[in-house]
């Protein structure tokens, strides 16, 4: 039995990838999570310059739906500073995917130009952050903009390009088509859902930015639906990385069956012992594969499309 999987030309030791925005502020947390048994890690989204993000509260848990709402707002040190962290990861042989963002095409280009010489596993274009005023979802909901940015970046780098899609659209296929036409190597679905929590005693939204994005168990059925739709539309033409609400090994199997070649996990690792969670995920996948006499992850991919 093998847990190895591929996303296009990329080989991973297993289908578990740390998603962007979780434990990704420093090389040290990324390395720690990789060493605990992930297949690869995605950095925090990196932009052209240092950004403070939104005021606190910017992350808290919603226990009743096993989920988290956040409005970090792409706080990051900028690519010039974060480059050092990526260099350390590469030096330590950690399969690293750099998540990058910009408020417009020019900013995306600046970041890519600044990082393209690194031997990175892939660039993940964050075209879908819901927590900023300019860029973010605005970019990721317009097929033409998505096409232009992906095409431009394709001309800059030969590294694989992954495009992270927002679920906050009428038709995700249009956006995905644009990204594929632009020349991306994989689709990552989904980013967080637009959300808000109001405290009924204080009578105001709790997040400092008021609005936020929802992640965690509550969004899993939505992610599954989008991955299923994407696989149905594209088939083997483009690899899919499934993300959204994975909190148990079973959820990973579900995403693979929907059509994902690999998955990203984030919110579920925000615990005291993420190492244990990762081991549980792996054990559960192996148990399932054994029970269903499955030898390779690829046998599961898209298996629910009958």
């Amino acid at each position: 039995m093998e847990l190895e999987t591929t996303v296009g030309s990329i080989k991973l030791r297993n289908p578990l990838i740390l998603s962007s925005g979780i434990l990704g502020t420093s090389y040290s947390t990324l390395q720690r999570i990789y060493e605990a048994g992930m297949g690869a890690v995605v950095t925090k989204s990196i932009g052209p310059r240092a950004r403070k993000g939104n005021p606190n509260p910017s992350i808290f848990a919603l226990q009743e739906i096993k989920s988290v709402i956040n409005s970090v707002g792409l706080a990051n040190p900028g690519y010039k500073v974060f480059r050092e962290d990526i260099e350390k990861l590469i030096e330590n042989k950690i399969p690293t995917i750099a998540s990058v963002f910009g408020e417009n095409e020019t900013e995306f280009v600046e970041v890519l130009e600044g990082l393209k010489d690194l031997h990175i596993l892939a660039f993940e274009l964050n075209l879908s952050c819901p927590n900023i005023e300019k860029g973010g979802t605005q970019i990721g909901t317009n097929p033409e903009t998505v096409f232009n940015i992906v095409k431009k970046i394709r001309s800059i780098t030969s590294s694989p390009i992954w495009v992270k899609l927002t679920p906050n659209v009428n038709n995700i296929i249009d956006i995905a088509e644009a990204a594929v036409k632009g020349g991306c190597d994989a689709l990552v679905a989904i980013n967080t859902l637009k959300a808000m929590v109001i405290d009924i005693d204080a009578q105001i939204p709790i997040l400092g930015y008021k609005r936020g994005g929802l992640s965690g168990a509550a969004i899993k059925p939505i992610g599954i639906r989008y991955v299923y739709d994407l696989f149905e539309n594209f088939g083997e033409k483009i690899p899919i990385v499934g993300v959204g609400g994975i909190s148990r090994g079973e959820d990973i199997i579900e995403y693979l069956l929907a059509g994902a070649n690999a998955v990203q996990i984030g919110t579920a690792l925000g615990v005291a012992y993420p190492e244990n969670m990762i081991k549980f995920f792996q054990m559960r996948i192996k148990k399932y594969m054994k029970e269903h006499t499955i030898e390779k992850i690829s046998e599961l991919v898209g298996g629910a499309h009958k």
Partner: peptide, 23 residues
């Protein structure tokens, strides 16, 4: 700190990758 429960890593220290809030 942002989250306080080990998710965001804004409090993490190098080179161990320990999060101040939960580790």
């Amino acid at each position: 700190m942002r989250c306080g429960f080990g998710l965001c890593s804004y409090c993490a220290v190098d080179p161990t990758g320990w999060r101040i809030c939960v580790d």
